[in-house]
Every structure is written in structure tokens, then in C-alpha cells.
Design a protein around this nucleic acid. Sequence first.
DNA 1: ATCATTTCTTATCCTACATCAATGTTACTG
DNA 2: CAGTAACATTGATGTAGGATAAGAAATGAT
Lengths: 197, 197
Amino acid sequence: MLDQFKAYLNEKAGVSAEEFRKLSAGLTEATVPKGESLLREGDVCHHAFFVEAGLLRAFSRDETGKEHLIQFAPENWFLSDRSSMYFNTPSDLTIEAIEETRVVFLDSGFADRASQYSPSFRKYNEKLLQTHILQLQKRVNLLLGAPAEKRYLNFVNLYPDLLLRAPQWMIASYLGITPESLSRVRKELAKRNFRPL
Amino acid sequence: MLDQFKAYLNEKAGVSAEEFRKLSAGLTEATVPKGESLLREGDVCHHAFFVEAGLLRAFSRDETGKEHLIQFAPENWFLSDRSSMYFNTPSDLTIEAIEETRVVFLDSGFADRASQYSPSFRKYNEKLLQTHILQLQKRVNLLLGAPAEKRYLNFVNLYPDLLLRAPQWMIASYLGITPESLSRVRKELAKRNFRPL
DNA sequence: ATCATTTCTTATCCTACATCAATGTTACTG
DNA sequence: CAGTAACATTGATGTAGGATAAGAAATGAT
């Protein structure tokens, strides 16, 4: 129960067993079957999710109904709609399990509470936030101008493991291209001696 | 001296005159002539800038040398490379004055110091951060899939005033299209009875 | 004013990627 | 192990937007 979360916070944030005992009070955990949603478009996001095992995705849908994959979250990642949580507004994201996934539910007050109990957590949480911004910034940069192939290569570097676990149409959606285009990019890369794996 | 900044913090963040006196200690102000840089690609970003009057832009350059406009900052906006500041790493952004601009320099420690002196500031600063993330998220969403025209319309809504002040090639760069394309989009919109202004 | 430079538009052609449609794969499932 | 459903590849064709080039208009320096 919460073992993975505890180990992660200890290793990454330096949260001691004692600190963890306090800050984890009241946290719940659940296993979400493949395909199930943790957050639905239009609902206010009341929790951040920590992935202990499995894989989540967050996506939005545009007017034409097309899905845009905003983020993947494999083991040891946090996922939520920060804006919806913070501003208490309906989310335009859906969060869904790509594989059966074990998650820890972190309610809105969690980060603040935990920050009080544990300075290490406070620091780490701050770092997560800054990293989040950094990632978004980089993504904007790529989307502004980089061609499909470059975006794909960047993705491969960033999430090598996801290549095998996420279906290609989702990866395509993350990159902002069609599955067909992704298939062609991959073919092209293969021809020019490129070995992922 | 710092009048604009003071008024802004009072109105938006509810920072009292007394609080402002304390938190503004040591802040400096400068007027940057049109075309001058406040931060150069490769340098570590040591300040956030508050724009009292004028207009700044932040942009990156890709391998091919093409500029990508990351953000505009007109009056009463903050601009900086958060990641470079936080992680103390060389920035890949350049920050430059589009018009002659009066800015307040906020050093790395400022936000934390000011947060201690003023709880209102602390709250407001947190809100700015969350808003920043929200904006980035929205931008990613647009860039993933929305065609040039829609991006432009979105821009017009978001920054109506900038339409007149920023040259079109910069706006094009912000949208991730060429100035020629932007020109086409505008022509098309004009034909279909669209009146900005 | 005048000339130069920068910005904006327009026109032509071209390329990357989308769309559509068919065919191949896997992988469940009864 | 057939039968279907989900996913991936392939091919043919369309199109938004890029590249290039040239002129118009604005801006600015002398």
C-alpha cells in the first residue's frame, strides 16, 4: 500500500519514512482497468494522480472531435489538470488508463499539507512545477516549426520506453500528426538505418 | 520610480503601500531602447522583467537560424526564462525590446523575499505561475492541429492591442507560420467581412 | 524631400502532410 | 481456430502552407 509512492518520494525528494507517515495520512490508492477514465472533459479536476504502475494519458478534443494527446504518464509520474484544480474550473482534458494502472489519489490540499510536514517535499514539488513549465516550453518550441521527423526523434529520446507501450496512433496524436504520417516517418527512418531498440 | 509597478501590485495583488515599501527595497529600473536585448541566448537568466511601459518579446532560434517567438510582454506583464532562472542553466531565449521599454529588474530571490513580506504577493505570484502553465497548455493545444486562421483568430482575441504594435512577421513567428501565410490569412478574413478594430 | 531599409502583399510553384481507401497485421474471443 | 475488432502499413490524391521572387507601402535616416 503506497509502497511505490513512498519509495519514490524517499529517493527523489528525500522524504523520510517519518515524514511520509505524516504526509500520506488519508491518501487513497486504486487500480484502474485499461480504458477507464480518471477525469472526464467538463468535470473539475479534484485530484492529481501519481502512477505507481501502468500508464495514463491526458488528452483534449477539438471541435471536430479530434483527440490531441497532451501528456503521457508512466510509472512514477504525476498527472493532473493543474489549471482546473487550481482555478476550480471544468477541465477540457480527459485522463484515461492506457494499461491497467495503479494510482495514488492526491487531493487539492495535498501539496500544501505535505509541504508543511516536509521541507524536502516542498522543494521537490516546486521543482516538479518548474520542470513542468520547462517541458511545456520545449514542446511549444518543437511544435513551432519542427517537422514531423524531428518531433518524432525528440519523442523517442524523451520516452524510449513508451515507444513499445503506447499505440502509434497515440504517439502520432502527441506529435500532432496522423498515424499514417507517423508510419511513413518510421519507414523513412528505418530505410536510413535507424534502430530504436 | 517604480510607480507603475507599485500601482499594479496594489491593484492586482492587493499589496499595500507599506508592504510595497519593504518588498521593493533594492529593485532597479531601466529604460531599454528599441531593439536592445535584456537577455541573450546562452546566458543564464538572472532577472525577471516587469514591463512598466513598452513592449518586449522573447524568442528562440532553431538550428536553421529561424526565430520562434515564444512570448510577447506589453505593459504590466512579467517576462523571464523561468527555467533558466530556476535551474541556473543557459537560456535558449533572447529577450528584446520591440519598442523603447521601461522595465523593473526582479532578481532571482525577489519572489521569495516579497512573498515573506506580503502574503498577498505570495498568493498573486502563485496565481501567475498557474496562469503561465494554463497559457502554455492552451498554446500546445492550438499548435497541435489548429490551422493558421484559427490560431490567428485566437491571437487576435488574446492580444487585440498587439495587432497594431507588433510587426506582422513577429506575429507570424508567434503563430508558427510565415509572414506570407499570415498575409494570406488576413486577406481571406477581410474578404469574409472581418473587422479587427 | 529623397533615397534606403524594412515591412507587407501578391503571385507562382512546390513540398510536407492530410485525407481517403484498401490491404496487412495482431490479438481477442466465442 | 474462424471471425471480428483494433491497430499498422501502403498507395493515390488533395491541400494548406512553405519557399522564392518581385513589387508596393511604410518607416526612417540624411
